[in-house]
């Protein structure tokens, strides 16, 4: 039985749009599940059970005797992240100003700036690391370059949003008091944006510590190198220890970073 109330007004365009998206979503899932290649028989096999029996106990029995060497590599990871983030935090500033439409009043320049930042963001850091390893050799420097380029993309975008949200009245009043462009920058803009810039840079450092622990897999220094070796040698005690060190160090850095960021803003 239909309720005796006015029918819902039909919006054909909306209906068609909705229909198309539903079909598209179903199609994507059908395509995915039909073509994904999982060998279930291999996964649910005796071998998997054996693997569990063999690996899990070793994994949870971390190789504490390796603590020293793993810590050294983890510190290197933190250093890579720090150097990379700091470089990015500085390089991103001029780029961000180019993208901010309230500072540079040219839509074309803004757009070009956005494209550059967007393109940089689209590169997974590992790909950057691969290129830099080929360029400067398999060393931490390649990692630093990968991190700094990768972080510039994100920081530039966040910075430009901060700049666009500043109070323009202050700039106006400085202008009317006869300040030149550079003076406006240092007296009117920087005081407004620096705390947030710094907060974002520290946040990005948190992310970079995680990111740089991966880069070693392609030879760009840091703890990732040890992960590859331990994995190739099936040394699960060491994998367990590496994970433990990462968890502890990353947690400590997150705590410090969020403490500083809370005090900044």
């Amino acid at each position: 039985m239909k309720a005796n109330i006015p029918a819902k007004p039909k919006n054909n365009l909306k209906l068609v749009k909705r229909l198309i998206s539903v079909i598209a979503i179903i199609a994507i899932y059908v395509w995915t599940f039909a073509s994904v290649n999982i060998e279930w028989s291999k996964i649910f096999s005796m071998r998997t059970i054996e693997n569990f029996d063999r690996i899990i106990p070793r994994f949870f029995d971390p190789a504490f005797q390796e603590t020293g060497s793993i810590m050294l590599k983890m510190i290197e990871t933190v250093f890579i992240a720090y150097t990379g983030s700091l470089a990015a935090a500085i390089i991103a500033i001029p780029l961000a100003f180019l993208c901010a439409s309230n500072i540079v009043k040219s839509r074309i320049v803004n757009q070009i700036g956005m494209w550059i930042l967007g393109a940089v963001r689209a590169f997974p850091e590992v790909l950057l690391a691969i290129i830099f390893v080929a360029a400067v050799g398999p060393n931490p420097f390649a990692g630093v370059l990968a991190i700094s380029v990768g972080s510039t993309g994100m920081l530039g975008k966040l910075y430009s949003e901060v700049i666009e949200s500043i109070d323009m009245k202050i700039i106006e009043s400085l202008e009317s008091s006869g300040a030149n462009k550079l003076q406006i920058l240092f007296y009117g803009i920087f005081p407004q944006v620096l705390p947030e810039f710094l907060s974002y840079a520290i946040y990005r450092f948190e992310i970079d510590v995680r990111a740089s622990s991966v880069l070693g897999v392609v030879g760009a220094g840091g703890i990732g190198t040890l992960i590859t070796f331990a994995y190739l040698n099936r040394n699960w005690e060491e994998v367990g220890m590496i994970l433990l060190v990462i968890i502890v160090v990353v947690t400590i850095i997150d705590q410090i970073s969020s403490f500083i960021r809370k005090r900044l803003v």
Binding site: N37, E39, S213, I246, I247, T251
Partner: peptide
């Protein structure tokens, strides 16, 4: 804790457990 584990370490462990492949 889960959020501190890098994706690569997760992958290494699961490849060890379930073998090489998409799963």
């Amino acid at each position: 804790i889960i959020r501190t584990v890098p994706d690569i370490v997760l992958a290494v462990v699961f490849v060890g457990l379930f073998g090489i492949g998409v799963f």
